[in-house]
């Protein structure tokens, strides 16, 4: 039972990270129907930014917790700026072009950013400081869930709740939902679509960078390629949950995290990807719109 609980919480932690990244895919898709393949790279850039700032603040003698906060702040700001710029450079000029053009532009952007970081940094794995402190009150249950995992779960929960409130109750959130449901009608209501799109990219990049910093300081290593793997997994999570649906991205992330965690724990870690992607295939066959996705037919 304890083993099960450990796997369950491990899957939840892993799933939280997938969910944080998947949110970006799903929101961007909801607004402009583009799979933003460069999104995984935003997560990677978030982790690298945090590493650089963490190194600087360590040299300046800050303590772990304040380094974590400052480095995270730098990472989300930097990553959001990247997300905003990528949209303006690579997608906005193609908004009226066939959809495939923007998709190819996204893939190009992804390759460019990977290689940019490869050249600017290194191809080796870099050690990432374990910034999340160990809490002594966690000692009695440390064999089930560690401090880092707890921090990841809580942070993810806070981000999700804030995002849900933003989408549900703010004017901008309403404009996002309206744009996703009927873009021309949103325009006719006076929504400035460029602002909504930019904002969507900024939020998506923000959550991805949060995920990047958390997982990097949990695992303790990063390289230029982590965004590709995490991106594919998070994209899978978004499709599982139903692309375009925010709660779907969260649920998809969790389901994927659990699948991998239980597959690793009860079968073999060699098969974690087999189970993850088999699940995707099954969903695509039996429920192509995803767990919480809406079928596209609407009443006119």
């Amino acid at each position: 039972m304890e083993y099960f609980l450990e796997l369950f919480l491990g899957g939840l932690t892993r799933g939280s990270i997938y969910a944080l990244i998947a949110l970006g895919y799903t929101m961007v898709y909801g607004i402009i129907e583009l799979i933003n393949f460069a999104h995984g790279e935003i997560y990677m850039i978030g982790a690298f930014t945090a590493l650089i700032f963490a190194s600087v603040f360590t040299l300046l003698g800050f303590n772990d917790l304040s380094i974590l906060l400052l480095a995270s702040l730098a990472a989300v700001t930097w990553a959001s700026a990247y997300g905003y710029t990528i949209e303006k450079l690579a997608y906005k000029p193609l908004r009226k072009a066939p959809r495939l053009s923007a998709l190819i532009s996204a893939i190009g952007m992804s390759i460019f950013l990977q290689n940019y970081v490869l050249l600017a940094q290194t191809s080796d794995f870099l050690p990432f400081p374990r910034l999340i402190p160990h809490f002594s009150f966690m000692d009695p249950i440390v064999h089930v869930i560690g401090s880092a995992e707890l921090v990841i779960l809580i942070t993810t929960a806070v981000v999700m709740i804030a995002l849900t409130l933003l989408i549900k109750f703010t004017k901008l959130g309403k404009a996002m939902r309206a744009t996703a449901q009927d873009r021309d009608m949103a325009l006719l209501s006076g929504v400035n679509i460029n602002k909504v799109i930019s904002f969507t990219f900024i939020i998506g990049s923000f959550t991805a960078a949060v995920g990047g910093v958390l997982i990097a300081s949990h695992i303790g290593m990063i390289n230029f390629y982590i965004g590709f793997i995490a991106g594919i997994k998070a994209f899978t999570a978004a499709v599982l949950g139903g692309i375009g649906s925010v709660p779907g991205a969260v649920l998809g992330g969790m389901v994927l995290g659990w699948t991998e965690s239980f597959a690793t724990g009860y079968v073999s870690s060699d098969y974690e990807d087999v189970f993850a992607f088999s699940l995707l295939v099954l969903i695509l066959i039996f429920r192509p719109e995803g767990i919480l996705g809406r079928s596209t037919t609407q009443k006119v």
């Binding site: 309403k174 939902r177 309206a178 006719l188 929504v191 609407q298 009443k299």
Partner: peptide, 14 residues
């Protein structure tokens, strides 16, 4: 062109 998944109130807000 009613926003199908927004409430009546939210449609009016828009």
């Amino acid at each position: 062109r009613i926003f199908p998944f927004l409430s009546v109130m939210e449609n009016l807000d828009m």
